[in-house]
Design a protein around this nucleic acid. Structure first.
Length: 421
DNA sequence: TCTGGGGTCCTAGGACCC
DNA sequence: TCTGGGGTCCTAGGACCC
């Protein structure tokens, strides 16, 4: 059996741990630049606020005191996530961290009649040790466990744990699950399925496999089998990342190449730092630019360019230099840019980088690598960009991000403080 | 006025091989 | 007039996830 552990309203719950007066109140957490609603409490969901709503459309509620607003604090959420995941990792031998607030557990070795108690006490432990409420869905496949977790979250009667462990429960759960809520059925596929008369997960499983294969190919067949109880998607532990992206929207649109260069330098430096953190190196460096897609009155331009390095690298100098080189090939004056980013791809373990026949100065890379390591060791001690390249200028790639409702650095400043109002 | 960030996988089609 | 058959690899773009 698989268990899906899903933290409830995760970002909101993180904020509530340190600001208990938010408990019971309608709360939303906003994306960078205070742009969109990316997390909601049950109370704000009940007010009809949708995921992804632009904040300006609901800001009047905040002004009227009917809605609590938090700017996102990803460092805090990352720390809270790590605490939850370590509790899970201690509880079972095999866990797949699926996202910042979700993990699959492989429940091998736990007698089936004990699973419910096991999950209940696990949820209670997470709550007691971190303050975060979680729901757990249990089923023979990951796709069914997802559905079970929805029920666990939605209906208080389950007390946070829902099991799909009999054929009868499976049929009932599928018949109550609208097709668009199924894991793997997205916004594009759902309308097509409905048009074809597939309204629930149960309808989907009752179509013949050949029909699924014809219309939705391999991915559809996998979902179909998983919903019928046959495992197709195994738990994957510790899969190395294949690409790393650092990108931001700007609070104001930028027209100046020099200014964009500094941003791109910063994004590239962050990518390089993440590579070193993971002990990996990348061979491809992509820089991309976006104009403001919401401004129909302005010219649009969404270019990207990739530089392939002779040899995979993780030092800041080489990654930044490649990102800037790519930028120079795509930058066009006259556009107003709203967003930029850097993606490093073709990632390999740093200790098994393939040397290049045409790498004319491997000694330079050794020097650059050492310099980056020294930067890391200094920057770890305090300001994360105390040492940086001149091209980055400020070194605070997030400095002009709008963040008017941010909570304190509860998990990264010296003291953890619970605020009382 | 104001609209996020970071990933994965699959497929079709082109380029190339003999 | 008539122009093969069988592969592999890579990439871009689309769909999905949180």
């Amino acid at each position: 059996m698989y268990a899906l552990v899903d933290c409830n309203n995760f970002f909101v719950s993180c904020e509530r741990v340190f600001r208990p007066w938010l408990e019971g109140r309608p709360v939303v957490v906003l994306s960078n630049n205070d742009g969109c609603v990316v997390a909601r409490s049950n109370e704000s969901k009940a007010m009809g606020i949708r995921m992804g709503t632009p904040f300006y459309q609901v800001s009047h509620l905040a002004d009227q005191g009917r809605l609590e607003v938090c700017s996102s604090n990803y460092v805090l959420y990352g720390d809270m996530s790590a605490r939850v995941m370590s509790i899970l990792a201690d509880a079972v031998p095999k866990i797949e961290i699926y996202s910042i607030d979700e993990a699959f557990l492989v429940l091998d070795g736990i007698a089936e009649e004990k699973i419910r108690d096991f999950c209940s006490s696990l949820a209670a432990r997470i709550r007691r040790w971190t303050g975060i409420p979680a729901s757990i869905g249990v089923a023979p496949t990951k796709t069914l466990a997802k559905i079970a977790s929805h029920f666990a979250k939605k209906f208080p009667g389950y007390k946070g744990v829902c099991m799909i462990d009999t054929e009868e429960k499976r049929m009932k759960a599928l018949s109550l699950t609208p097709i668009e809520e199924v894991w793997g059925v997205g916004r594009r596929l759902a309308p097509k399925l409905k048009e074809a008369g597939v309204l629930t997960a149960l309808d989907f499983t009752e179509r013949p496999e050949s029909w699924i294969r014809e219309h939705y190919m391999l991915h559809g067949v996998r979902t179909w089998m998983e919903l019928r109880g046959t495992v197709c998607v195994e738990a994957e532990t510790e899969a190395a990342r294949k690409s790393i992206c650092t990108s931001r929207s700007f609070a104001d649109m930028i027209v100046d190449e020099e200014e964009i260069s500094m941003k791109v330098s910063d994004f590239a430096a962050q990518c390089a730092r993440k590579l070193r953190e993971e002990g990996t190196a990348a061979q491809d460096v992509t820089t991309f630019l976006y104009t403001n897609r919401f401004r129909a009155d302005l010219d649009q331009y969404f270019p990207s360019a990739t530089i392939r390095l002779q040899t995979a690298a993780s030092n800041t100098q080489e990654i930044v230099s490649a990102a800037l080189k790519a930028l120079r090939t795509i930058f066009r004056p006259g556009y107003r840019y709203k967003k930029a980013g850097v993606i490093v791809g073709n990632i390999v373990p740093a200790d098994s980088v393939q040397a290049s026949l045409f790498d004319f100065d491997p000694g330079l890379r050794t020097k650059n690598d050492r310099l980056s390591r020294i930067m890391d060791s200094v920057n770890r001690r305090g300001d994360s960009s105390l040492l940086r390249l001149a091209s980055q200028k400020s070194g605070h790639y997030a400095e002009d991000i709008r963040r008017e409702h941010c909570s304190r650095r509860y998990s990264t400043s010296l003291d953890e403080v619970i605020e009382v109002k």
